[in-house]
Amino acid sequence: MSMTSMVVLGLSIATVLLLLGAFLATLRQDRKDGTATEQPVAPVEPPLPAPVAVPGHAGVDYTDPRTLRVGDKIDVLGSPVRVLGALHVSWQGQQWVEYRLRDSARRIQWLTVEMRQGQGPDQPPHLEVLLWTDVPTQGMIPARSSLIMDDVEFHPLERGTAAFRSEGSTGKPDRGLLDFADYRATDGRLLSFERVQGHPWTAAYAQPLPPGSIGIISRASS
């Protein structure tokens, strides 16, 4: 082999080695850079619901019924209804709101929202939401003892006379006094009698609603 050929061969080998070294160095750098940017991702923790004692924040994933307003269109157990009016009721330091609802078939129901104190010192306050459905009373007057309704025995729970203030369309005066008598059956069913003083008694069964049963479809225009 001539001297010229050996020189050319040596230069070719050197060039290949240089290119291979540069490629390996680039590959190591890319791996290093990729490792530096891939940080471990912490698992996403679901946000905790706010305490019910804070108005407007019963939970991050369901509507607080205390924020309902007259004129709102809402969803109750999957059915759209309109909030026609509200009764703001006060009795012996307790306060609650009774919302008058109308569904697409123009049926009327009432929704009661009240913050209840715990039964004992270790039990925190809780939000009670009840959906009321009228039942025919046929002139019945709530007894101070137990009574029978639809073959079910109900026992006295609470009764009294509360002051109320009307907002929107409630079918009741702007202000007045409201007599009520609440009963509970042994199976937990609730029955309530109400009357504006000077008017006849009406009665309704109550259905407790769990959180998430109410949603906002559209807010009333301010």
Rank of each mutant, 00 (worst) to 15 (best):
D61S: 11
F154E: 05
G93V: 02
P46Q: 03
L19R: 12
L127S: 00
D187L: 05
A181D: 12
L157Q: 14
E38S: 13
A204K: 03
Y205S: 07
A162R: 10
T26P: 01
V135I: 15
E158M: 13
L101H: 05
V76P: 02
L18Q: 07
E98Q: 04
M149F: 10
D33C: 02
P46Y: 06
R159I: 12
L178P: 05
D150Y: 04
Y62C: 04
T137E: 12
L101Y: 02
H155P: 08
I141Q: 11
L209C: 02
D33R: 08
P43D: 06
G59I: 02
S213V: 00
V44T: 13
P65T: 11
P124I: 06
W96K: 06
P46C: 00
R184P: 07
H199M: 12
A14C: 12
Y99Q: 01
D122W: 09
K172R: 15
R69M: 07
P121F: 02
G120D: 09
P51L: 05
L131K: 02
S145K: 11
M3E: 15
H57W: 08
P125N: 05
A163H: 10
S79K: 15
D33Y: 06
F154N: 06
Y99R: 02
V8P: 07
P80C: 06
R100S: 09
F193M: 04
V7A: 12
I108K: 03
I216V: 15
L27G: 06
E167G: 08
I148H: 10
A163D: 12
E114P: 04
D75V: 09
S145H: 09
G10S: 14
R66W: 04
H199V: 09
P156Y: 01
V196P: 00
D151W: 03
V60L: 11
Q29I: 13
T137M: 10
M115A: 11
F154Y: 15
G78Y: 00
L77M: 11
F154V: 01
E38I: 10
P65N: 01
A42W: 08
S218T: 10
E153D: 09
S145T: 14
H199I: 01
T161E: 14
W201R: 06
Q207D: 12
T4E: 13
D187S: 10
I13W: 04
I13Q: 09
M6Y: 07
S146P: 05
P55H: 05
R219S: 08
L130D: 13
S218M: 02
G188P: 04
L9D: 01
T4Q: 11
V81R: 00
V8K: 09
